[in-house]
Write a protein that binds this DNA or RNA. Structure first.
Lengths: 202, 202
DNA sequence: GTCTATAATTAGATAGAC
DNA sequence: GTCTATCTAATTATAGAC
């Protein structure tokens, strides 16, 4: 027949790359809803209309799939950079606004997923801890050159984690339903105080 | 022999009630460390030096055991009461100190346990949300009679959850290794500011 | 009350045909 | 790349002896 070679359309997936994307998308949703241990490869495969064996073919192991799902390589950096872009004096509100805006708008934020999974999966816990240490604690500590910089960074981390858990995981009111503006005006100064305010002397 | 009837000592368990208590205690610890899905009945039984079948004999199902473990009807109230015992002006530090002290003595970690399980078990999530609403938000809002009382209570909840997650779940430094005193002096004023400080007007 | 034995189910992972 | 079939291991849970 004449169409024996028309399947080589450039720019279009010729093979299972499409299935792979479907698996990734479904996995993200299920991991987010049920955590790492609460999600089975089989459930992912079924929901993605793919054979379970394909998942292992694509990602090797369940952990490999999770890593691929959680990989926020080109998602978070811009947000982080925009936080560090301005001066320290207005950073408090910028942190809160950027954080909440990003988590509100993407419907399965890696940070929330990681936090969810960190409670049941040790690997996720380590992953989250390393991410926070590298992207927030270390950079903040470098920026503030006070002796208590590490403690101040820790206080900021508590604000970030508390906000994420309260708004997106446990969904406590009125934090869960507050607008970005409300959160920015209430928590902004609080975070700013963690960064540059006066702290108790030892 | 003469001791054929001395096993009927009043005031002492004559039977498996002791094992049952041991199972409960161990289960509390493991559920706390690994969450609901991450904890197996076998692991609990082994750690409690009891046969796995006994666990089912005592509690029927795994969920039954979990419910028995997280039933903190007469567990938390003393701590909560001691927080509300003093005046509002020193409540910030009292919240932090009581919280951290109680969670550090990991004998009774209901908040951390619930927070862990809340991510994978819907029942736990609802339980945690209701507990926080009832024991903290509502009582705080009643105590402060300002128009923004609910928001202030929410801010306090963020501090509590952030502190719990950072110190006990993700174990971020320097929060995880800080002493009770350090946390009380750094977060106490912060929480106090949430309670009685000046907030941004809408 | 306690244990052995085991049923019933489910998980992650692999081999190999097509 | 995709699927069938299967292995291995671990899980919750039950039946029944002692």
């Amino acid at each position: 027949m004449a169409e024996h070679d028309d399947h080589r359309r450039p720019g279009r997936w010729r093979s299972g790359a499409e299935s792979k994307q479907r698996v990734l998308q479904v996995a993200r949703e299920l991991f987010d809803r049920n955590g790492y241990n609460g999600t089975t490869v089989r459930a992912i495969a079924t929901a993605a209309a793919v054979d379970p064996a394909m998942v292992f073919y694509f990602f090797g192991t369940k952990q490999g799939l999770f890593s691929a799902v959680i990989d926020m390589s080109d998602n978070v950096p811009p947000a982080i950079e925009s936080i560090f872009a301005g001066g320290v004096d207005t950073m408090g509100e910028r942190i809160v606004r950027t954080l909440v805006q990003n988590l509100d708008n993407s419907d399965r934020p890696p940070l929330v997923m990681l936090t969810r999974s960190a409670t049941t999966d040790p690997r996720s816990e380590a992953l989250l801890r390393e991410f926070i240490d590298r992207e927030i604690t270390d950079r903040l500590a470098a920026l503030l050159d006070t002796p208590d910089a590490a403690l101040r960074a820790g206080m900021v981390n508590v604000q970030i984690l508390g906000l994420a858990v309260a708004r997106y995981i446990v969904r406590i009111e009125p934090i869960a339903s507050a607008s970005v503006h409300e959160l920015a005006t209430t928590f902004g100064p609080l975070v700013q105080h963690c960064l540059t305010g006066r702290t108790a002397a030892p």
